[in-house]
Computed example of a mutant assay.
Amino acid sequence: MAHSIGMTGMDPQTSAALTEALLQATRQLGGAWRVVDDQDADFVFVDMDSMYGPMSWIRLHANGKRVIGVTSASRSQTDFHLAKPFDGESVAALLQSIAQVPAATPAAASQPAAPAEPPPTATATPAPTPSDLTPEETVSVPDEEQAPASVEAIAAPSPPPTPEPQRDPVFVDWMVPGALSGRVRYRRGKGPALLIDADARQYHGPAALKPLADSISGTVQRHDFLMVPATDWPAEAKAAGEPQPLARLQWYAGLVAGHGILLAGYDPQAKYRLTKWPQTEREFPKHFRIATVMMKGQATLAEIAEGSGVGIEEVTDFVNANLATGYAEAWREPEPSPEPQKPGGLFGRLRGR
């Protein structure tokens, strides 16, 4: 009987890398594993280095799931451990080592049992015993109703700030270097097809950007990008359009991601500036005026809108596009330099004469 595997609590880049590694591993293991949603999986990968990982682990552990901690640390408090960096070979070795471990039963949600020890390998480690736990790893397994409160027990000596709710990935998240690999096809609804060569950082698609707005809006998952066989790529890429830099598509994805609201993690009251002149598009003639104001120095969104004569929502979208490509940045007031210490002692007094 095939085991099932899922993943949660990780950023798009880690999710994409793990998805590729799992595809290689499951092919190598000949169908012994199925990749499913984390709610239906026997074993679940969780990125313990991410801000959402510990909370995901608590929830899954309280529900009786077997958790595989993905981390750069030498060990993890999860049932099993996948060390970073990983690849298809290391994931396959790990899955082989835990294949004989029975899946958790629903009863485990109310009374979690001690995890069975897998055969000793270099990549699979059982969860440490309570006496072996470090202070920051000591955490009580709560009931489902109390799970959010127990996250305070993860960190010591002071609890971490409450993280923002995890959002669904959008198209611009997948345009970050490393989020995708290989040659893939993206198409949604009746929109034009995009042929993306992630390794070469190029794409084939229509010359205009605005026709892509609907197809790249909303939640976008890894499975929306389909691998294109090497034999099919030349013909499909030629039919899709001339090759263009993927940074252009990344810029446009950032432009339409916020709908007049700054991307998550950025302060709407902060000041922003361009670090270099961006490539402006003819489809957006007002962007030249916005860029001109931003190149003069740091300014708030309201100040940029006033100086350029462009509405603040369009200014915000332009800032988002350039934050996504690294052409813009949030500006912070530099800290004052410390005053030089006055020379003391005999030699100091002599130098001061």
Results as ranks from 00 to 15, higher is better:
Ser74Glu: 11
Ser74Ala: 13
His81Val: 04
Ala83Met: 04
Ala83Gly: 05
Ala83Leu: 01
Val91Ser: 13
Ala92Trp: 02
Ala92Gly: 02
Gln96Gly: 01
Ser97Leu: 13
Ala103Val: 10
Ala103Lys: 13
Ala104Pro: 04
Ala107Lys: 14
Ser110Gly: 00
Gln111Lys: 15
Pro112Trp: 01
Ala113Asp: 08
Ala116Leu: 02
Ala116His: 02
Pro118Ala: 14
Thr121Asp: 05
Ala122Gly: 15
Thr123Tyr: 04
Thr123Phe: 01
Thr123His: 02
Thr129Pro: 09
Thr129Ile: 06
Pro130Lys: 06
Pro130Ala: 02
Ser131Gln: 11
Thr134Gly: 07
Thr134Gln: 13
Pro135Ile: 08
Val141Ser: 13
Glu144Lys: 09
Glu145Asn: 10
Gln146His: 13
Ala147Val: 14
Ala149Leu: 12
Ala149Cys: 12
Pro157Arg: 06
Pro159Cys: 03
Pro160Glu: 03
Pro161Phe: 09
Pro165Met: 11
Pro165Ser: 04
Arg167Tyr: 02
Arg167Val: 07
Asp168Asn: 15
Val170Trp: 04
Asp173Thr: 12
Trp174Gly: 11
Val176Thr: 14
Ala179Val: 11
Ala179Cys: 10
Ala179Ser: 05
Leu180Asn: 07
Arg185Asn: 04
Arg187Val: 00
Arg187Glu: 06
Lys190Phe: 11
Lys190Gln: 11
Gly191Trp: 10
Gly191Asp: 08
Leu194Arg: 00
Leu194Asn: 00
Asp197Arg: 12
Asp197Pro: 15
Asp199Glu: 01
